[in-house]
């Protein structure tokens, strides 16, 4: 009797397996997938660089660049918490894999322009 139930369930139940490559990957609104950087808001205060547990972020204040190594980032979201300027956010999609030749760091040029009245930013 129990077996019949199990067998019948198979016919009316959706398959458990996700058809991943055809279907989009599953995630939720709160999933920490990868880090997104908004170059127009970054004041290069370097807080994200200092507080990153795996030191995946490098902010160069002189060259005005913001660099992330996706192969070091642990997606903890600590940088998002410490960023006071809303320049960082977490997106749902995971970072893509890379072949040996494609592996590298992602580099952004900071386009933030200081407002008219210059004031001191955080950091040293």
């Amino acid at each position: 009797m129990k077996m019949l139930k199990t067998i019948l369930k198979q016919f009316f139940h959706e398959p458990v397996t996700t058809l991943f490559p055809e279907e989009p990957p599953r995630n939720y609104a709160g999933t920490r997938g990868h880090l997104v950087f908004d170059p127009s808001k970054c004041t290069s205060c370097t807080m994200c660089m200092k507080r990153c547990p795996s030191q995946a972020i490098i902010v160069d204040r002189a060259a005005k660049t913001w660099i992330i190594d996706r192969f070091r980032c642990v997606m903890c979201g600590n940088c998002v918490d410490v960023c006071k300027f809303d320049s960082l956010s977490m997106e749902r999609e995971y970072s893509k894999s890379a072949a040996a030749a494609e592996r590298g760091v992602e580099k952004f040029d900071i386009t933030y322009v200081k407002p008219e009245k210059p004031k001191k930013e955080g950091g040293e």
């Binding site: 990957p25 997606m75 995971y94 893509k96 894999s97």
Partner: peptide, 12 residues
Amino acid sequence: VYVPGCSVRPEA
């Protein structure tokens, strides 16, 4: 091949 993620997602 390098697969990023901590921990890696099965889809990745």
